[in-house]
Computed example of a mutant assay.
Amino acid sequence: MTAPARPRKLAKVPFVELAGGRLQGVVSSGSDIGRVYVSSVASGTYAFACSTNNNRPCGGARGSFCNHIRALINEAVLQYGAERVARYLKVETASGEQPSASNVEAGMSGTRPEQADTKDAAPVFSRFLRHLAYLELAPSAAPLPEMQWFPPTRTVA
C-alpha cells in the first residue's frame, strides 16, 4: 500500500480505489445527506457508470461524465497521484505536460466514452461498507484475523 499523494477530505468522496480494471468509488450526494453514488470509469474504454446505493441511475450521467465521476477522478488523483491514475486508466496526456486531474479527464472525454452497466456497483458499495465497519472497532493492539495478510509494521511491546 502506498501513501496518499496528498491528503484528501473524505466528506465528498469517502471511498476510491483502482481495482478490477476500473477507477471506482463512493461519492456523497450534494443534495441528500442520506444518499451516495457508486461511480466508476473503465480502464482503456472509459465506459462509465454512476448510480445510487440502491441502484437508481444518476440523472447527470447522460452521454458524458457527471459531477460524481469528476469528483471521483479528482479524489483519485489526490489519493494515488495523476501519473498513476492516468497509467491505470490508459489515458494519454499531452506530451510534456504534467498530468493532473483535468488532463486525465480531458484525455478520456475526447474519446466519447459509453455508459456502462451498473452491475458492478454492489461489490464496490459492499467493500465501502466493510471499510466503514473498521471505524466502529474500539482501539486495540490485538490482531484482526481478516487483516492478517498485512505485513507487520512494528512490534508491540
Rank of each mutant, 00 (worst) to 15 (best):
Q98C: 09
P7W: 14
E17W: 02
V104P: 07
S29G: 15
I33E: 09
H131L: 12
R22F: 06
G96H: 15
A106K: 14
S28W: 04
L89T: 05
S95M: 15
T45D: 00
T45V: 07
R112H: 14
V27A: 15
F15R: 13
A141W: 09
G44D: 00
V27Q: 13
E136C: 07
L89C: 00
P152K: 12
G96C: 13
T52W: 06
A101P: 04
M108P: 00
S109C: 13
C66P: 07
G30P: 11
D32N: 13
A121W: 07
S39M: 02
S40R: 10
V16C: 13
S43T: 05
S109Y: 04
S51A: 12
F15M: 12
S64T: 07
P145W: 13
S40Q: 13
C58V: 06
T93C: 06
Y37E: 10
G34W: 11
M108W: 02
T118R: 02
A49E: 03
E97Y: 01
H68K: 04
P143V: 10
P143H: 13
T52A: 11
S100H: 05
T153P: 11
V41F: 05
V124S: 10
V91R: 01
Q79N: 00
G81I: 03
R154K: 15
T155G: 12
G60F: 05
I69P: 12
N55I: 01
T118Q: 00
C58A: 11
T153V: 15
N74V: 03
M147R: 13
R56E: 11
A122C: 01
R62A: 09
G107T: 04
S51H: 02
P152D: 12
R56M: 03
S140F: 11
G96Q: 14
A5E: 04
G44L: 02
T153E: 15
P143M: 08
I73F: 00
N67Q: 11
E83S: 01
V77Q: 06
T45S: 10
C66A: 07
V156S: 09
P152A: 14
R84F: 05
A61W: 06
E75M: 03
Q79W: 05
A42S: 06
S31W: 08
R84M: 06
G25Y: 04
A86L: 05
K12Y: 11
S40I: 03
A71C: 04
L78G: 09
S64G: 10
T2W: 11
Q115V: 01
V16P: 10
R22G: 05
